[in-house]
Computed example of a mutant assay.
Amino acid sequence: MSIEVRLFATLRKGRGKKVFFDFECGINCNKIIKKMNIKKDDVAILLINGRDGEFDRELEDEDVVSIFPPVGGG
C-alpha cells in the first residue's frame, strides 16, 4: 500500500516536504514517525486525509498523513 507523508516547518529539515512509502498492511502513524526518526513529542498536529488523526490508527492505501511540529512565536 502507498502512503504519502507531508512534513511541515522544522520537520522538513533533512527529510523534505513530501515522502512516499510503500508498506505492507498494518502500518500506523506511530510506525511512520519512528521510521522517519521523528520524536512523538515533536508532533503537535497529526492529520490523516486532512482530518484529525490518531497515532495508532491503522492506515489505508493512498492515505495522506500530514505532520506538524509545535508552533512558537509571539
Rank of each mutant, 00 (worst) to 15 (best):
68 F>W: 12
59 L>G: 10
65 V>K: 01
46 L>D: 05
4 E>R: 11
49 N>D: 07
1 M>C: 13
35 K>L: 09
62 E>D: 10
40 K>N: 10
47 L>Q: 03
58 E>H: 12
15 R>S: 00
49 N>F: 05
18 K>N: 09
56 D>A: 10
72 G>P: 06
47 L>H: 09
66 S>L: 12
3 I>V: 11
64 V>A: 09
65 V>I: 15
72 G>D: 06
16 G>S: 04
41 D>V: 12
26 G>D: 08
48 I>H: 04
57 R>T: 14
39 K>I: 03
14 G>K: 06
35 K>R: 12
72 G>I: 12
57 R>D: 12
13 K>W: 06
31 K>E: 13
2 S>K: 15
55 F>W: 04
30 N>P: 02
73 G>H: 14
9 A>E: 01
45 I>V: 13
26 G>Y: 11
55 F>K: 04
16 G>N: 06
57 R>Y: 10
3 I>F: 00
45 I>P: 03
13 K>Y: 11
14 G>H: 11
1 M>A: 15
9 A>F: 01
60 E>F: 07
56 D>M: 06
66 S>E: 15
39 K>M: 07
9 A>M: 06
50 G>T: 07
10 T>F: 01
57 R>C: 09
5 V>P: 00
40 K>D: 13
14 G>S: 10
27 I>F: 08
46 L>P: 02
7 L>W: 11
10 T>R: 01
37 N>A: 12
55 F>A: 02
46 L>Q: 13
17 K>C: 00
73 G>P: 15
11 L>R: 01
43 V>F: 00
5 V>L: 06
4 E>L: 14
3 I>A: 02
56 D>L: 08
68 F>I: 12
73 G>C: 13
68 F>T: 05
40 K>G: 01
22 D>E: 13
64 V>M: 10
59 L>R: 08
60 E>W: 04
55 F>I: 04
22 D>H: 14
15 R>Q: 10
26 G>L: 05
1 M>S: 15
4 E>H: 04
56 D>H: 13
19 V>F: 08
47 L>T: 03
60 E>Y: 09
48 I>P: 04
70 P>Y: 14
60 E>I: 06
62 E>T: 05
40 K>Y: 13
18 K>M: 04
16 G>K: 00
13 K>R: 13
50 G>N: 11
33 I>S: 00
58 E>I: 15
20 F>C: 00
26 G>E: 05
67 I>F: 03
46 L>N: 14
40 K>C: 02
55 F>Y: 14
46 L>M: 05
8 F>N: 02
15 R>K: 15
67 I>Y: 06
55 F>C: 05
6 R>E: 12
31 K>P: 04
25 C>Y: 10
37 N>F: 12
69 P>H: 12
2 S>F: 03
53 G>I: 01
11 L>K: 00
46 L>T: 08
20 F>T: 04
38 I>E: 00
68 F>V: 11
10 T>P: 00
36 M>F: 14
22 D>N: 14
74 G>F: 15
15 R>N: 08
32 I>A: 00
66 S>H: 10
19 V>T: 10
21 F>Y: 08
51 R>A: 11
63 D>Y: 09
63 D>M: 09
39 K>L: 10
18 K>R: 11
11 L>Q: 01
42 D>I: 02
25 C>S: 07
40 K>E: 15
